[in-house]
Design a binder for these strands. Structure first.
Lengths: 227, 227
DNA sequence: TTCATAGGTGTAAATCTATACAGTATGATT
DNA sequence: AATCATACTGTATAGATTTACACCTATGAA
């Protein structure tokens, strides 16, 4: 096999990881999403290059028609050293992100609280990690303090979705409303104020979209009445 | 896992064969072609049945989105020590209970919608199944229509807990309040009325207590405003 | 009989996906 | 300077795929 460029090795590693995680190869768009491409074509040309060099085989006209030339490792063994962005463990685990260290990426090791054995494909699009939500600002969307928000990593956030956004070294969960080019972050709780994003002033980084919720303890009804 | 019909076993075997041969799962049409169906729908309903029985997992809206619950054998040649009776530990799965058939026990096969790979020990006490909640009656406890309530099977329900109760051939989720020997079922939504249980008249069967919530799709903010 | 379930046919719409065409930019090689 | 490969953005479209709806035929149980 011809030598692969570093970028091509990344693509190949992603494909392998994707298959072990989901059981099927990625589409061009999914590759692009995972690596931050804005066009599925970037993935397409990488795939062509990989096929040309013999690392993969492409079946024309077939969705997800990517075949690895060298088979995947049996299962638990080899995977551990690769620690890609998404939790790739033998038993389908998702990392739980607690308090996020300022300045470091969301999935930095020091932010990971623990791992939960939850199928990432339970959610759609699939979950990449679980974020421990703090505060009541999304209460009326059924997201309570202490809940785990299942998050799909993507920079593409559409109007009306619940987004995870890094804003001045904090990570916040809000509805996103984009209208006339203006982006607003809307809480789901009248006690909190909406906020308008100023692209000049605010260093806002989209981290992903919420795709589900897991609550691992339920509120008890107190004798007093509420909660 | 529930027992598969002979035909379902054929389908499952075909899927496994297809994956080992091509590296990706088959489409509905490809399954149909291989088995002589004239309609992709025959394959679709078989896949549903297999998912219901926990043999595969289906990713909605995804081409070739079929995942095997139990992994494929390591590789073509290598079965020296045999696929022993123990096999690899398949990921723990919880059944999802949808509409409950009147008269039949909660965990009857016809009530099982599908299986989700979720660690039962994520909740405490551990979850025995996931119940699809219908209606808004527990909204203010953060349990919304369509949510999956993680349920621990027990008949012992304590004051203030969220309980799953079978009441006149329906299954309901409510806060339970026991005071002076009187049991009351309290919704968490002012639009619904509390109810007092009369042990003489009401055939109320405690099925378990809620120990957690999983929401596999999030509400989108509609342009109108609410939800 | 009547009902429920397994197993199918057939059609059609919505949406996913592969992939062509047209560009931009940056390095190496020639 | 010209050429080529890598690494992308952006748009568009034909075709692949999922999936809903309507309906048919057995077979076994109530």
């Amino acid at each position: 096999m011809k030598t692969l460029t570093p970028r091509q090795q990344e693509i190949l590693a992603l494909i392998r990881r994707f298959i072990t995680e989901t059981g099927y190869p990625p589409t061009r768009s999914e590759i692009g999403e995972a690596l931050g491409f804005r066009s599925p074509n970037a993935a397409e040309s990488h795939l062509r290059a990989l096929a040309r060099k013999g690392a993969i085989h492409l079946t024309p006209g077939t969705s997800r028609g990517i075949r690895l030339t060298e088979p995947l490792p049996p299962s638990p063994g080899e995977i551990l050293h690769g620690r890609g962005p998404e939790g790739e463990s033998p038993q389908a685990q998702l990392p739980v992100i607690g308090r996020v260290a300022a300045g470091s990426p969301l999935l930095a090791e020091e932010s990971i609280e623990c791992h939960y054995a939850v199928d990432p494909a339970l959610f759609s699009p699939r979950a990449d990690y679980l974020l421990r939500v703090r505060g009541e600002s999304m209460r009326d969307a059924g997201i309570l303090d202490g809940d785990l928000l299942a998050v799909h990593r993507t920079r593409e956030i559409r109007d009306g979705q619940i987004a995870v956004i890094r804003l001045h070294d904090e990570v916040t969960v809000k509805y996103v409303e984009r209208r006339h080019g203006v982006v607003r972050l809307l809480p789901a709780n009248p006690d909190f104020a909406p906020m308008e994003l100023d692209p000049e002033r605010d260093a806002a980084e989209p981290e992903g979209i919420g795709v589900g919720v897991i609550r691992d303890r339920l509120p008890t009804l107190l004798p007093g009445g509420r909660r």
